[in-house]
Design a protein around this nucleic acid. Structure first.
Lengths: 225, 225
DNA sequence: TTCCGTTTGCGTTATTTTGACACAAACAAA
DNA sequence: TTTGTTTGTGTCAAAATAACGCAAACGGAA
């Protein structure tokens, strides 16, 4: 038996699908590469995984140093290993996806280098590597997840109105929902509560602000939308 | 930038959760290790991933050479990277789970080395590495999956009766279901059809044989059981 | 002020789905 | 024939869902 680390293994990387919600649209952070391969092409942010860090730590490192994002929702998505997915050689990528709330999104937008941009998921450019496939998998996961876990709140501010929440759901699910039925199902699920405040200063009737109540959270529900 | 494969990367492995269904019980293939670490302890079958093979190929290799199983259902589960999950060093494992039908199960049972055994999921011994965690994740995935994809049929023979199918569902879900409601929901989902044959030779009323009909498959349904 | 267009909040009703049963049919064994 | 057990089919009340009406609360125009 040879020494342990002399085994020839594929290289290990992480790629990140960072979702944000702004201007009534779900969007993704893309990075314009300055180096080959795919020079000047758009890709997901990613990096190789070091010997001393976990996958999550590698993701946090990317989020922090490349994008200036901290303490946001992060989840492992899938591990991609198509043979020629990276022209440089054999690289296996453990893809993750992250959710950025509106508050943090706007706060960081200015700090970002001009080679990092938000793209609405409805208008994604050609992506390098197999990142189009990764992005599609992330969207599918998010679609499924939003129906049984309170993950959508990671994309909104602490306080949000029912119409705002509904528009988010519609963006992610890709179809429109009846206002009144949506409201009823969300309230029945029982993980939001009224704050008592209203969204004033608008043109129409003020909307009630709601709050994601972690104490009431059933941690497992099922929305039929 | 150093030569590509001089990056220090964690070692990459695969571990397999092979599910079988026999004697009205869901069971898992476990391997008794002949070498350290966890010598004489039970673990999931696994192997390191070579440079020239995909993850799926590595899994097929294990299934074929170690267990004598071919062309069975295989799916990626999750990638485990807890720092000290392997006492030999930093190993990241892309766990998969496989489903073996009763026919193939019995055909191969005899060929298996005596250090490989089926264990009912209700009676699992202490496992090495983080394999208990992997097994639990696989069970959870299977529980969820059986409700919206026709994956349970991979565990049965081509022809099966409704009571057999129900018992399988009950084993995986972990709770009993009303016979009549179960039948109705399965038939409403519309991916099984009567073969016309009956399971004769038993003590009681013969049960109708059903068939998993791939042509009728909606590929996306939702069972509420 | 009054009227209008728009959005929000709250409700109703018909339909569908679900959960909990009852009962007869088909076998083997007594 | 009778009994015990399992399978196939149907019923019915309760719950969940989809579709929809209507008044309240704003800003802006008349």
């Amino acid at each position: 038996m040879p020494a342990f680390h002399t085994y020839k293994n594929p290289a290990l990387a992480t790629d990140l699908v960072v979702f944000g919600y702004q201007d009534k649209a779900l969007s993704v952070l893309l990075l314009n590469r300055k180096e080959a391969p795919f020079k000047n092409g758009w890709t997901l942010p990613g990096a190789f995984v070091g010997l001393e860090e976990t996958l999550a730590e590698a993701c946090r490192r990317i989020l922090d140093t490349k994008l200036g994002l901290r303490s946001i929702y992060l989840e492992q998505l899938y591990t991609f290993d198509t043979p020629n997915r990276d022209p440089r050689g054999r690289v296996i990528s453990v893809a993750h996806f992250a959710l950025v709330s509106q508050g943090k999104l706007t706060a960081v937008a200015g700090k970002m280098a001009n080679d990092v941009r938000w793209f609405p998921v409805t208008d994604i450019p050609v992506l390098g590597f197999d990142h189009r496939q990764i992005l599609s998998a992330a969207q599918e996961r998010l679609r499924a997840k939003i129906l049984y876990q309170p993950v959508g709140f990671e994309l909104l501010d602490e306080n949000f109105t029912m119409p705002e929440l509904q528009d988010l759901y519609e963006c992610i699910l890709g179809h429109s929902i009846d206002r009144r039925n949506f409201r009823r199902k969300i309230l029945d699920a029982g993980f939001v509560e009224l704050t008592g405040e209203k969204k004033e200063g608008l043109q129409n009737r003020p909307a009630d602000y709601y709050n994601f109540n972690k104490k009431l959270l059933p941690q497992h529900f099922h929305l039929n939308l």
